[in-house]
C-alpha cells in the first residue's frame, strides 16, 4: 500500500503570508504548528511561525518553540517570561515579517473575533491581495456546527480583523473521539460554506489514523496530516509511522 501522505496532495502556497484564524477550539494552533513542520520539509524557503494568540492562556503554539526551532522554523514569540502572559504583546518582529514577506510566514491568531482583533492593528502591514486569511472550521464546536453559525463567525472575524478571508481549512474533530465519518461530515459543512461564500476549501487536516481511512476519490483536495503536539500533560504523542 502507498504510504498515507502520498495518497493525497499536500497543501502548498504561492503567497508568503498564511494567516490562520477561526473560532475558539477549532484547532488553529495545531494546524499552524503542523503546517510549519510540513512547509519546512516540503519547500526550500525559510518558514516562520508567529504566535499572535493574545486571548488563550494555555495550549498555544508558543509551547512548541523548542520543537519548531530544532526543525529550523523561526518562532516569533514574546521574549522571556512574557511568553507565559495572556497580554496583548505583539513583538515588532512580527510586523517586520509580514512586511518583508521572506519565505513563508504563518500567523497563528487567537480564537473568535476577540482573538482576530489583533490583526486590525497589523492590517496595514499586509499587502492587499497578497496574503492568505484562512478560516479553520471545526463542525464539532457549538458555534460553528451549521452554515448559519459559520457565516456569522466569518462576518465577525472579518469585521474585527478588517481583513477578508481567502479560504477555509476543514479541521473537524472531537479530540480522541474523532471518527472518519465525523471528519467527512465536517468536510461537507466546509463545502457548503464554500458554496455560499465562494471561499475555496484549501485543505483538510486530520490525524494519520483518520487519513488512513479517507478515500482519495471522495476527498479530492490537499490533506495536512496532524501529529498532535499541544497535548494535555497526561497525553502521549501517537506513533506516526506514515509521516515523512
Amino acid at each position: 500500500m502507498t504510504p498515507v501522505p502520498d495518497r493525497f496532495p499536500k497543501p502548498s502556497f504561492s503567497k508568503s503570508i498564511i494567516t490562520i484564524v477561526g473560532g475558539y477550539g477549532s484547532g488553529k494552533s495545531e494546524v499552524a504548528v503542523n503546517l510549519a513542520k510540513h512547509l519546512i520539509h516540503s519547500q526550500p524557503e525559510p518558514v516562520a511561525l508567529a504566535d499572535l494568540d493574545i486571548v488563550n492562556p494555555y495550549f498555544r503554539s508558543r509551547e512548541t518553540v523548542r520543537e519548531l526551532t530544532a526543525l529550523g522554523v523561526t518562532a516569533l514569540v514574546p521574549p522571556g517570561d512574557q511568553i507565559y502572559a495572556e497580554l496583548p504583546i505583539i513583538i515588532p518582529e512580527i510586523k517586520t515579517a509580514i512586511e518583508k514577506k521572506e519565505g513563508k510566514v504563518i500567523l497563528d491568531v487567537g480564537g473568535d473575533d476577540t482573538g482576530a482583533r489583533v490583526l486590525s492593528s497589523l492590517s496595514d502591514a499586509f499587502e492587499p491581495g497578497n496574503y492568505e486569511l484562512l478560516l479553520v472550521l471545526n463542525a464539532s464546536r457549538p458555534f460553528t456546527a451549521d452554515l448559519a453559525g459559520c457565516r456569522a463567525m466569518i462576518d465577525e472575524i472579518e469585521a474585527a480583523s478588517r481583513m477578508k478571508f481567502t479560504g477555509i481549512i476543514s479541521n473537524t474533530h472531537l479530540m480522541d473521539d474523532t471518527s472518519t465519518g465525523l471528519v467527512l461530515e465536517g468536510l461537507n459543512l466546509a463545502r457548503a460554506v464554500s458554496e455560499k461564500t465562494g471561499l475555496p476549501v484549501v485543505f483538510l487536516s486530520a490525524t494519520i489514523d483518520i487519513i488512513d481511512n479517507l478515500n482519495p476519490r471522495e476527498v479530492t483536495l490537499p490533506v495536512l496530516p496532524l501529529d498532535r503536539s499541544l497535548l494535555k500533560p497526561w497525553e502521549r504523542r501517537k506513533k506516526t509511522s506514515g509521516t515523512e
Partner: peptide, 12 residues
C-alpha cells in the same frame, strides 16, 4: 457529543 472548553462546558 460536541467539543467544548471546560469553562464553556461549566457555563452551559
Amino acid at each position: 457529543k460536541i467539543l467544548m472548553k471546560g469553562n464553556e462546558a461549566i457555563a452551559e
